[in-house]
């Protein structure tokens, strides 16, 4: 009986590991390939590099169009930081109103907000582009940042509203009776109590901004403003397939911040996914 139990546990682990390894195989292979010479990448099936080299990283980090790859990483970080601030400020304000304040249109406006979650962004895309173009914002970060300060990410409002509804009303009553203003209530009580929710917003904003390709490609055209996503594609166009090694090296570099955020903030990420059913 005990033997049977052990054997089935062993089979369980073997199966899970084998399947997991085959899933991660492409990623691991890319990581290994980034340390191989270009000839070795295109020959044979060996997993580990025969003569590990850092030359791919050296040539990849030189970047494209005269800008080092670090520049693009810096751009992506700046953009993500601005989007995080915008989302946290604007979405937490809206969520507070929906979750804790009383006003006649609360239910209706909340439904409107949920409805916007289902809209494909393409119905807004073209007029937005045309207007941003008219006012000279194309080829700046403004079209990517400014909307975030106006709570355009409905999902985060939804998530924070759920979170703030969980804060007990009794807890807020005492400061209320002491004459605490609504604004002070928000800053001194709601915000500190919502910190885990706000962390989740920050982590998701980072991942989405880092991975976003479509809007960054549309709005950014000067290489000095390129983000990692746009630069990677340019890299392929500029160098072709002859330098897969350098491309893989830069791909790995581009995934490191994602991985670091994941490892550091796993708890918030998992909670966010479980709370709202979004993809990471």
């Amino acid at each position: 009986m005990r033997f049977k139990k052990r054997a089935s546990a062993l089979i369980f682990h073997l199966l899970i590991i084998a399947f997991g390894f085959s899933m991660l195989y492409p990623l691991l292979w890319m990581l290994m390939a980034s340390f191989k010479s270009n000839q070795e990448i295109f020959a044979g099936v060996n997993f580990f590099p025969k003569a590990p080299t850092l030359s791919n990283y050296a040539s990849g980090l030189k970047g494209v169009s005269g800008y080092s790859f670090f520049k693009f990483i810096g751009n992506s970080f700046l953009l993500a930081a601005a989007c995080i601030i915008g989302n946290i400020v604007s979405c937490s304000m809206a969520a507070f109103a929906f979750a804790k304040l009383e006003f006649r249109l609360n239910k209706i406006l909340f439904s409107v907000m949920m409805l916007t979650l289902m809209l494909p962004f393409h119905v807004r895309l073209i007029p937005q582009y045309i207007v941003f173009n008219k006012i000279g914002w194309v080829d700046t970060y403004l079209p990517l940042i400014i909307p975030k300060f106006f709570a355009t990410e409905g999902f985060f409002i939804f998530m924070l509203t759920q979170f703030m509804r969980g804060i007990s009303n009794e807890l807020l009553e005492a400061p209320r009776i002491d004459g605490c203003s609504t604004w002070k209530l928000f800053i001194n009580f709601i915000i500190p109590l919502s910190l885990p929710g706000l962390m989740t917003v920050a982590v998701f904003t980072f991942i989405w901004t880092w991975n976003d390709f479509f809007s960054q490609m549309i709005y950014l055209s000067n290489p000095s403003r390129f983000t990692v996503a746009v630069a990677l594609r340019m890299f392929v166009d500029a160098t072709g397939q002859s330098t897969w090694g350098a491309l893989f090296a830069m791909s790995c570099v581009s995934l490191i911040p994602l991985f670091a955020f994941f490892v550091g903030f796993q708890r918030y990420l998992i909670e966010g996914i479980a709370a709202g059913g979004v993809k990471g």
Binding site: P26, L27, M30, I207, W210, N211, F213, V228, A229, V230, L232, R233, V236, L247, F248, M250, S251, C252, S254, L255, L258, F259, F262, K279, G280
Partner: peptide, 11 residues
């Protein structure tokens, strides 16, 4: 986590 990135599409 990685799947939506340009890096993985290129891979």
């Amino acid at each position: 986590l990685f799947g939506g990135s340009v890096a993985v599409a290129l891979l």
